[in-house]
Nucleic acid binder design. Structure first.
Lengths: 208, 208
DNA sequence: GTATGTGAAGACCTTCACAGCG
DNA sequence: CGCTGTGAAGGTCTTCACATAC
């Protein structure tokens, strides 16, 4: 309970939680081996990771599926049902606003914004596109906790700055750029081109 | 030259390459400090990473911008201009097919596929949506090297299997699932929900 | 003076291997 | 017997600190 949880462990918790969905219905326990298989990691890793959460299994049996789901959800804060704001109503912003997968984990898209007046007023995925000027107000009104940057690279930093100014401490960045934020603000970067380039590095090495 | 390049280094190379774009026009060299600032890492890290590529800077001056760009592009295989196939013509597949950022790094979307007959024959981002049955043929014809999975989770594994059967060794997976593939096939996973959950873990810890 | 290149130290992460317990 | 829980070992990655070169 004293030691803090390694970041590498934190990044795997959502994968374990999802892996619980692969457990056949009717099976009430699952072993670290099963979890490891569906997460693609070593089973000792699973046991060690879960031990950081003070989750206990039963020796000779495994972990209780329901209890583990509960504990992972709690640790990840999914019980709270966080609201997110999406800035950028282009192709990606639209795809995100429409994405049904968020709701499953308790996330709600509570605002979609764009700087481009041509896009403001339209609807994407059932959400009215608002002017960026309304960001602070809506963040307050709807208790938004997470900002998603889905703009081109050159607008990303200024959007991030506004997120921070509006009081958000968590940003998910889809723009191909590294955001500069103050201490205490968490940023996760999701970058398609970077991932493709990592793949081509390996192709290159293999001589293809 | 002998030692292999750490995976953590490989993952940063695309970021350094992009960081070169931040160098003011007219500036022909840049220091590890500048690169570090735009990549968000330590400058010693930059120097060590570049040393794995046998890239040399000039002491007291820095690295040649043009030369470094060239060497990073070569190392990442971007000179080759790889072709990619996108499977899944939903919101995300559409956003990817439309995404202009790929071309900048030499990637071409050379085929868009869907299992759903209702979507086959439509156009997304200037690409005809083809039946999944045509995958093998188009992969061969157009020399496709990378497969992108942009389907719902339950279809993802079967799509990956077809990619592998068609001879692809590189897969970029946007479906919220862990793919099982044979040795020698590289998979990179991009998962929005996982990233959001990592952010909420920290919010949770901070008491929000 | 300025910035690279790198051994060595340190931090972090993963895996092993087995004791412990149901 | 089966599977968890964990100290210890082994790897990998990051950072420091300074010799080296321009």
């Amino acid at each position: 309970m004293k030691t803090s949880i390694p970041t590498a462990t934190i990044a795997r918790l959502p994968i374990y939680l999802r892996g619980l969905g692969d457990v056949p219905p009717g099976q009430t326990t699952c072993s670290s081996d099963e979890l490891a298989a569906s997460a693609g990691v070593n089973s000792a890793q699973v046991r060690k990771d879960l031990s950081y959460l003070n989750v206990s299994g039963v020796r000779g049996v495994g972990y209780s599926v329901d209890e583990l789901r509960e504990q992972l959800s709690t640790a990840l804060g999914l019980k709270q049902g966080y609201a997110v704001a999406v800035v950028g109503a282009g192709n990606l912003g639209t795809a995100l606003s429409n994405y049904g997968g968020f709701a499953r984990w308790g996330f709600t898209v509570a605002g979609v914004f764009d700087i481009d007046d041509a896009k403001v007023g339209r609807e994407v995925g059932g959400h009215l596109v608002r002017p960026l000027a309304d960001l602070e107000e809506i963040v307050r009104q709807r208790n938004i906790a997470i900002g998603i940057v889905a703009t081109p690279a050159q607008a990303a930093q200024q959007v991030a700055d506004r997120f921070v100014a509006a009081g958000l401490r968590s940003i998910l960045n889809f723009a191909p750029t590294v955001l500069q934020v103050p201490d205490g603000v968490s940023v996760r970067r999701v970058d398609f081109s970077t991932e493709l380039q990592i793949l081509t590095f390996h192709l290159q090495q293999a001589g293809n």
